[in-house]
Write a protein that binds this DNA or RNA. Structure first.
Lengths: 222, 222
DNA sequence: AAATAATTTTAGTTGAGTCTAAATTTTATT
DNA sequence: AATAAAATTTAGACTCAACTAAAATTATTT
């Protein structure tokens, strides 16, 4: 009695869009996220509610039940474990793996995923720095802030980036920004919101939009 | 422009059922293999012919075009490479992997499959002894015969087994029959067609049906 | 509080892939 | 060669997941 790919993708979208404290997601938000029509979303929400994966009230939006939340979390777990495999074992780059993991996450086998986890050494984070839920659905949250929020002279280490847009990730690679890269904030250009940073001794600048999608763990600044 | 899972599965079925010299597969054979109705097969054959993956004549059956054959062969390649990964890297057993590989073979990424091949060391055979096509679609055929065809006192090594039925494979494992196992034929029980063999010094018997699905490479018999 | 805008749902279609039942074509048998 | 049997195709219907257009509900603004 497995779920269809479409059902799984809807649950994943609802989890991704659920934010505390409300945890209720609107029809339009899901439609935008999945690039589909609001009418299609309404149809699917009715089905998912019928199967008790979500709680849904007409015109009010949807929220995951414990059951639905568990399924969505396991999809995230599978997605991120496969990404680790693709990068660590096969040598793919962080910009190549999201699309492939979108397919791999739907493979149905609990023994497979537990053995993959073991094979990879029970990684806690994926190649973009996102936490990997364990078999019980628990994961590590780390204190982090967008690079764009750093004040001049603050410094830190890149611990995560917004995944999934390959050209954004390739841009970072070109600039020398990777997980673990140490960055010092120099300042913001008042005209164009460009961010000035240094990596090692090297100075460079990033657009504000890019800097919002790089996440930093602060280190003691002098 | 990818194929649907259903289309891919039909092409794979046609390849599996194509036997020289005719290479033409009947509607009913496909229906039986895919456990579906003949009417559904007819519908799909029309679509595949329209897309030029097969040549199809009403009432006469279907055969793969070069294009269709290439796609089906690449599915076999992916299926068998994933099986090697599941057994060699993750430590699964040969009875567990077919069903999972049926899903994994549909993952769409050429770089992925070439890197997987390299990671595994370009294996030539899968965990059931079936040959793995290379990136050009070429594979190694080996001389082999069913265990049931051995004459008394002939001996050889198990180099392949019919894959895909988990309970058959578990049965073999229990009896101590694996790829590489050396077997001597002792004889056939005239009553019930049971096959008598020895493995090392140990004697055991197998049903005729089982013995037909174990493939042997003969070694010099005294 | 009424009017307008935005959001969401309903109604009616579509295409993929399947089904059963009936009709057609091919093959085998007398 | 005529008839019976087997194989195959056609016809019509179903489910899933999507769509557009129109209707209904909720939110916002005047």
């Amino acid at each position: 009695m497995g779920l269809t790919y479409a059902e799984e993708n809807y649950l994943k979208a609802i989890l991704r869009l659920s934010t505390p404290p409300a945890m209720v997601v609107s029809t339009n938000a899901i439609a935008a996220h999945l690039d589909t029509s609001a009418a299609s979303v309404t149809d699917m929400l009715k089905k998912l509610a019928e199967k008790e994966f979500i709680i849904y009230q007409r015109y009010k939006g949807a929220s995951l039940t414990d059951h639905g939340s568990r399924i969505a979390t396991m999809l995230i777990r599978k997605h991120r474990l496969w990404e680790v495999f693709l990068v660590k074992s096969l040598g793919m780059t962080w910009d190549e793996v999201h699309e492939i993991a979108e397919e791999l996450e739907h493979i149905q086998s609990d023994p497979l995923i537990e053995k993959l986890d073991s094979f990879l050494g029970f990684p806690k984070f994926d190649p973009h720095g996102d936490p990997i839920p364990n078999a019980q659905g628990k994961y590590t949250l780390r204190a982090q802030m967008p690079l764009s929020d750093l004040k001049p002279d603050q410094e830190g280490v890149v611990i995560a980036v917004r995944e999934s847009d390959p050209s954004f990730l390739r841009h970072l690679t070109e600039k020398g920004v990777n997980l673990g890269t140490h960055i010092t904030m120099n300042g913001t250009d008042s005209y164009d919101q460009t961010i000035l940073i240094s990596i090692d001794q090297r100075q460079l600048n990033l657009s504000g939009k890019v800097a919002q999608n790089i996440f930093i763990k602060l280190t003691s600044n002098i």
